[in-house]
Design a protein around this nucleic acid. Structure first.
Length: 282
DNA sequence: AAGATTACCTGAAGGC
DNA sequence: TGCCTTCAGGTAATCT
């Protein structure tokens, strides 16, 4: 599923061709995941793509109106679980579940494909409050900023890592992998982490995200980048979807539990359970 | 009001 | 073989 490293890889790919292109037409299929389809069809054609950016797991295409005025709107795309953005020649057959076609002035098309339609497309006005609730960009956050976000929170650290208001862009894969690297059990209450643990966790988050970006993301189910290429970081996963396999540090079998409705993978030896959650052992 | 739970959606996988 | 159930999870809505 597309998390920060996957979205970053897609953004870097789209940046090679999209800036400077003008959208010449919009064609939509199913629209139940689009904020206001009529507005998109009416207002997007004619606008020029100035830049392609990422905020957490969101892609943002900064736009300039046809008349060159300073409109400052942006096209927002979230890939949900199964969303894909690909460029194609108009005559190329469309993949199943292709729900949006954006024709470009170089004769090509940007297409949005999404089996489950958990994604989102919206046209944002300039300075919309839309993304203001997002937390820090993980690769730029400081230890102090991260610590402030964790202070007093009584939810499991696993759930807090998934909370986009804390650090934006982390999903289930990188939450589990970060906690393993930092040797912190996913059920630990976020506010109970020591300052050493907070520091180690942020270091782990940054190193795992950076490594995943270098390997062009994780292709677990159906993620591919803007060129249709799979990522490679799934080869480096230490716990995610490795239940029953040996921990690469200590050889103990990886376990899976459900936290907040999400599966969580960890090493029961490297990541010591809080007292409250420890199973009685004889 | 933070934390927990559920709905949304479809295809893959497993059970029988 | 085929039908049924379960699972995957990002986010928003709904609960407690």
């Amino acid at each position: 599923m597309p998390e920060l490293p996957e979205v970053e890889t897609i953004v870097r790919g789209l940046r090679l061709t999209l800036p400077g292109r003008r959208v010449t037409g919009v064609r939509l299929g199913k629209t139940d995941f689009i904020d206001d389809p009529a507005v998109l069809e009416r207002d997007l054609p004619g606008q020029k793509i100035l830049a392609v950016r990422r905020m957490g797991k969101y892609l943002l295409f900064d736009l300039e109106p046809a008349d060159g005025s300073a409109g400052g709107a942006s096209l927002l795309v979230h890939l949900g679980m199964t969303g894909r953005l690909v460029t194609a020649a108009p005559e190329e057959p469309e993949a199943p579940h292709t729900h949006a076609f954006f024709a470009l002035d170089d004769g090509r098309e940007l297409r949005y494909v999404d089996v489950r339609r958990f994604g989102r497309i919206a046209l944002l006005a300039k300075d919309g409050a839309e993304l203001s609730k997002l937390g820090f960009e993980p690769l730029e956050a400081t230890e102090g900023q991260f610590a402030d976000k964790l202070r007093g929170r009584r939810a499991p650290i696993k759930s807090v890592l998934l909370d986009q208001r804390v650090l934006r862009g982390i999903g289930n894969i990188y939450a589990d992998e970060s906690l393993w690297r930092a040797r912190i059990h996913p059920l630990r209450l976020a506010g109970s982490l020591t300052s050493n643990e907070v520091r180690e966790l942020l270091r782990a988050v940054k190193s795992v995200l950076a490594a995943a970006i270098r390997m062009r993301g994780s292709s677990v189910s159906d993620y591919v980048d803007a060129d249709g290429q799979r990522g490679l970081f799934q080869q480096r996963h230490r716990v995610y979807q490795r239940e029953g396999k040996k921990c690469s540090r200590c050889g103990t079998a990886i376990e899976r539990i459900v936290i907040g409705g999400r599966s969580s993978h960890f090493c029961p030896k490297c990541q010591r359970a809080p007292r409250r959650a420890r199973k009685s052992k004889r």
